[in-house]
Design a protein around this nucleic acid. Structure first.
Length: 740
DNA sequence: AGCACGCCGACT
DNA sequence: GTCGGCGTGCTC
């Protein structure tokens, strides 16, 4: 390592370690060329190993001791150079969330960029119906027994072409595909992905709908601000035509040869969304979600970067797609909690999207039937353009919500008599019923009827959930499993019984009670298998089932026009939660579930079972609707300086011993800071989880700058904290779930 | 997060 | 005697 060969060029590199800093390196003369280093990946010596880092900036001087610096080993020169705006976005995000910058880059980039060898240029593999094969051969095949293959063939026929990721998401295997290919019903095609250029036939006009007056106003508002930042909140009930607004807003942007980014809450929604977009636009569309493997994700990333993708549809992390010609961002179901990452780098996909739109000077559209209170507040104070879609397409009416008081009446498996009667009459009319219970498993606990012993998970100190179909007790907090005990370990009694109801139990009960009808359950357990969710949803649409039971999975995206009765069994928990957001989430869930049901000719009805029918929150929601409810809650939050009127940060610390996290946070709370309130340290609502003891410290300020200054002071102080190395700790900016 | 260094227990 | 347990400290 001689310094003679080195020119005075110092680069700041983001290294994948959990440290809130950049590392400075020298660049040997031999590695300099006319390409800018900024945004490039480099291999650097780091401690006793070599790692891949990303160059954040280039300087010609450094305050560090120059002879202690190391030189980079090599540059990974390829076509994976990060565009400057994305680099800036990630740097800003790291600063805003006070998260280690190396980790921010690592999480935002596809895993394959962690490797030195970048995979080759993506090609698009797809399967197409073979027009030249004999119709008679197909006819006989379709009457045959290879059910899955027949379904798949039909799908490929209907879609003209399907790619492997799409086929896999729909629940089919490579084997089934190969088999169809061997029979020559379909053929595999591949083509290199090309740079996208606007073409006259990019739009399928025949698919286009006429806009209502309300919709037209929104579209023209967005169209008028294409060259500048503007945020549009589209507040519209289910079926009011939000998607059509998105599509027509995208039209101008695509015609302008720009790219569009669409964020959706979960993968469950992507195939549908893709379908609708593909029918309208003849442009390359790429998906980005957790169902893709590393190669596929990299393909999307690369295609976006090379301007081969016109539209990227994806979940939370798609907000970091490199889109050099991004012209519009759409965040669908913006209120959805899944936009917030709930571990390590706790960013909010929607908020990053807004930051990105501001940075690029482009419009962004947030859509929801139940906007988050933050967004509503921004709309009411004119930070966002607020658009309401009040009319449902066609003549359908919004479902009416009514309450059933269950405080003084016996329940059978969680269902009241009047509710059972309603279910019965609805089924007899030949209509479908949806029973909603946000608790999977058979029962949320089991206990001993003699000594009141409860089976608790020892790692979390919380009751095990009984999963009877699997014959197991499963802890929903740490996923640990245990056999069901035959005897009470305390008193030896065999009278061990389930307590309370979960979806599994309700399904069993309803199947027995209404045995002439078919029942289907939709929750994480019953849809674990790939394609199972799509299959069950299709079966519901095909009216194979009359009774639908499910958790909040049922509240997302899908519409069930033949469901005319929605029953919500247990929402009381949210009425008395210490978490001030619980009621917001309850209201959103209720309105979302209600929106799943009914159509013009058959309006839906929503029944909520509650012990507290007079509770002001419920009364307000039922009588005055979501928006009034939201405004009431916002008034209350304003008085208490709660978000969005105050700004919060949550420090979490955990360790294997209960005293460490508390001591660490107590010392952290001693940091001299101004204009911020500190609450805690207090044990987390789940003090013990997966064997670790957890404490919280909440910081609250009346302005963001004050909050960030205080956090910076506390981070600086934490270096001297004597318990620092005994705990793991993280910062959560704008925390949503305070319970863990 | 890795990875090395270092200082104590149960093995051939 | 030493293999390896994981506590501690460092990384431009």
């Amino acid at each position: 390592m001689t310094n003679i060969l080195l020119q005075d060029i110092y680069i700041q590199v983001a290294i994948p370690v959990p440290m809130r800093q950049l590392f400075t390196y020298l660049v040997p003369n031999a590695l300099l060329n006319d390409k800018s280093l900024v945004g490039e990946r480099v291999i650097v010596p780091f401690g006793h190993r070599q790692v891949i880092g990303i160059v954040i900036s280039v300087d010609d001087d450094t305050p560090l001791e120059k002879d202690k610096l190391k030189a980079i080993i090599s540059r990974i020169d390829s076509d994976t150079h990060l565009p400057a705006p994305l680099l800036k976005l990630l740097t800003l995000a790291a600063r805003y969330y006070h998260h280690p910058i190396g980790d921010v880059f690592q999480q935002a980039l596809p895993v394959l960029l962690r490797k030195t060898e970048p995979p080759k240029k993506p090609v698009c593999h797809y399967w197409q119906f073979n027009e030249s094969c004999e119709p008679t051969k197909i006819k006989t095949f379709k009457q045959g027994r290879a059910k899955k293959q027949i379904q798949l063939l039909r799908l490929i026929e209907n879609h003209h072409k399907l790619t492997w990721p799409e086929i896999r998401t729909l629940g089919y295997t490579k084997a089934q595909l190969k088999s169809l290919e061997e029979k020559q019903f379909i053929s595999a095609l591949e083509k290199p992905i090309e740079v996208y250029h606007w073409q006259t036939k990019y739009l399928n006009e025949s698919d286009k709908l006429n806009l209502s007056a309300e919709q037209a106003v929104i579209v023209s508002a967005i169209d008028q601000s294409t060259e500048q930042y503007s945020c549009h909140l589209v507040d519209g009930v289910t079926g009011s035509g939000k998607t059509e607004v998105y599509l027509q807003a995208m039209e101008k942007v695509l015609a302008n040869n720009q790219q569009v980014l669409v964020l959706v809450p979960e993968i469950g929604l992507t195939p549908q969304t893709l379908n609708r977009f593909e029918q309208r636009f003849n442009v390359p569309i790429f998906l980005h979600h957790s169902g893709l493997n590393d190669k596929e994700r990299f393909d999307t990333w690369q295609s976006a970067l090379q301007n081969c993708a016109a539209i990227v549809i994806g979940t939370r992390s798609a907000v970091f797609s490199p889109l050099p010609k991004l012209g519009l961002i759409i965040v669908d179901e913006e209120h959805d909690g899944s936009f917030k990452q709930q571990d390590s780098f706790r960013y909010h996909g929607r908020d990053i999207a807004i930051l990105r739109a501001k940075q690029l000077n482009i419009p962004i559209v947030l859509g929801s039937a139940t906007p988050s209170f933050e967004s509503l507040q921004n709309a009411l104070t004119n930070k966002y353009h607020y658009h309401q879609l009040t009319k449902r397409a066609g003549k359908s009416v919004e479902a009416k919500i009514s309450l059933i008081d269950v405080a003084n009446q016996p329940l059978e498996f969680g269902l009241s008599k009047p509710l059972k009667q309603l279910i019965n009459t609805t089924l007899n009319r030949g209509e479908q019923v949806l029973v909603f219970l946000n608790r999977r498993g058979f029962a949320p606990a089991i206990n001993c009827n003699e000594c009141h012993w409860v089976a608790d998970c020892h790692r979390c100190n919380k009751p095990y959930t009984l999963h009877r179909s699997q014959g197991l007790l499963i802890c929903h907090h740490c996923t640990s499993q245990k056999r069901i005990p035959q005897q009470c370990p305390d008193c030896g009694s065999v009278r061990i019984k389930p307590v309370g109801q979960g979806t599994e139990q309700i399904e069993e009960y309803l199947t027995e009670t209404f045995s002439q009808y078919s029942t289907v359950r939709i929750d994480r357990d019953s849809t674990r298998k790939k394609g199972e969710l799509a299959k069950r949803l299709q079966a519901i649409t095909d009216k194979e089932h009359q009774i639908l039971i499910g958790t909040q999975m049922l509240a997302k995206g899908h519409h069930f026009p033949d469901v005319t009765l929605v029953a919500m069994l247990d929402i009381d928990g949210a009425l008395f939660s210490f978490d001030y957001r619980a009621s917001e989430h309850m209201a959103q869930l209720l309105v979302q579930v209600a929106g799943r049901a009914g159509r013009a000719s058959k309006p839906g009805k929503v029944i909520v079972q509650t012990q507290y029918p007079q509770h002001p929150l419920l009364q307000d929601l039922v009588n005055n609707g979501y928006r009034h409810f939201a405004q009431q809650s916002l008034t209350e939050r304003k008085m208490a300086y709660l978000p969005p009127f105050g700004y919060q940060a949550l420090f979490r610390a955990e360790a294997n011993y209960p005293s460490y996290p508390e001591k660490f946070l107590r010392q952290l709370a001693q940091t001299p800071i101004s204009s911020c309130e500190i609450a805690g340290p207090m044990p987390a609502a789940m003090e013990k989880k997966a064997g670790k003891y957890r404490f919280h410290l909440i910081l609250q300020a009346k302005s963001r700058p004050e909050l960030h200054t205080a956090i910076r002071q506390m981070i600086a102080q934490s270096q001297q904290n004597e318990w620092l190395n005994k705990v793991r700790w993280t910062i959560d900016i704008d925390p949503i779930d305070l319970s863990w």
